[in-house]
Design a protein around this nucleic acid. Sequence first.
DNA 1: GGCCAACCCGTACACATGTACTAGTTGCCA
DNA 2: TGGCAACTAGTACATGTGTACGGGTTGGCC
Lengths: 204, 204
Amino acid sequence: MQIVLVDDHPVFRSGIAVLLNHLFPTAHVEEVGDKANLDRLLIDGPPPDLLLLDLLFPGFEADADFTSLRKSLAVTPIIVVSMVHDVTTIDRLMTQGANGFVSKGARPEEMSAAFLSVMDGDTVCVYPSGPVLTAPADEAVSSLTPRQLDVLRHVARGLSNKEIARELDISPYTVRIHVSALLRTLGIASRSAAASFAASNGLL
Amino acid sequence: MQIVLVDDHPVFRSGIAVLLNHLFPTAHVEEVGDKANLDRLLIDGPPPDLLLLDLLFPGFEADADFTSLRKSLAVTPIIVVSMVHDVTTIDRLMTQGANGFVSKGARPEEMSAAFLSVMDGDTVCVYPSGPVLTAPADEAVSSLTPRQLDVLRHVARGLSNKEIARELDISPYTVRIHVSALLRTLGIASRSAAASFAASNGLL
DNA sequence: GGCCAACCCGTACACATGTACTAGTTGCCA
DNA sequence: TGGCAACTAGTACATGTGTACGGGTTGGCC
């Protein structure tokens, strides 16, 4: 059994690797930290029996690269392991063919259970357990309209209204309206506070 | 042997716990996720033989709480384990009596070595290994003047110039100068970009 | 068909932000 | 002692930002 574990964070990776070795003692866990090594591994070797995929790591474009990954690995189950757990992102991933979603905030036992279920052919989502700090944030974020969330992501990168307008191919006036609206529903006073909020909550 | 491990992140914590169990097979590792439980543990039980401390977790004020922690635990070695690794923060911690600093970006083997050294009475700092993404960021940040870094931290929280002025008890005009200067030296165009940058680099 | 939410575009105005100056104080170091 | 870096405070000006309007389209739903 061959498992590929993709995450750019060494400690995190080794934490999950230990968990996997405990769950699947016979498996070989290949740890990968960036897109270049992931590509090389998938091209050279045979498709793995399980792919654990972080959403944010060097060289990886969550939206575009996931779909192409899903295509090239037609049969291997893919579980997305991410810091982010806003509803919109997860929905999009599941419709794009992810077999599971596991928040990094979840307890190890919950993760294990999820991994086993997915290997059995199920599709599971695990949200963080216990007292979740980001819960109210998630709630607020998921009450945004898709377009507002879209704009927020750009605000989080520090872009100006004009720049966001260019990227989304709409008028700066419209961007301003989206920003104004999302600030209101999030109960945030300024764009830089929103940027800070979004960056801290993994919306980057 | 009693080890207390403080971090609000379950996976991270279990990753390091596994490492510790491997290093010190006879030790009991107590995992703590927030300040309330940490306080209770330190009041109720005897002082541990080693304290691994994250800098950012619920209820913990890095600057103030670390000094009081250092006072109440006069003999136990304290190793700070943090995502942040800008020079200023580390310097401050070491002068405040930390026995070690380990970046979460470091490889497991390096962490182990650091833990052992500290238990031997040494004082060590471990910076992230390999291709470090945040390295240029750290470089830039540490080239800021103390006051600029101070202001940047406030910007990262989404505060306006006026609010920062109130908190630092200086004129808003002066705040503006600091902001302008730090934007220039960081090569960043706007305050919200700076907020995003700072939040992503753990300066919160 | 009417209704409504979400999206789009624009104007007008108040205020925040960023830069470019001038200028005074402190403290450190050669 | 002179020089320099950092911090402070202010003015003036251009631009960005946030809100309050009005008004348009689309698509879904009763």
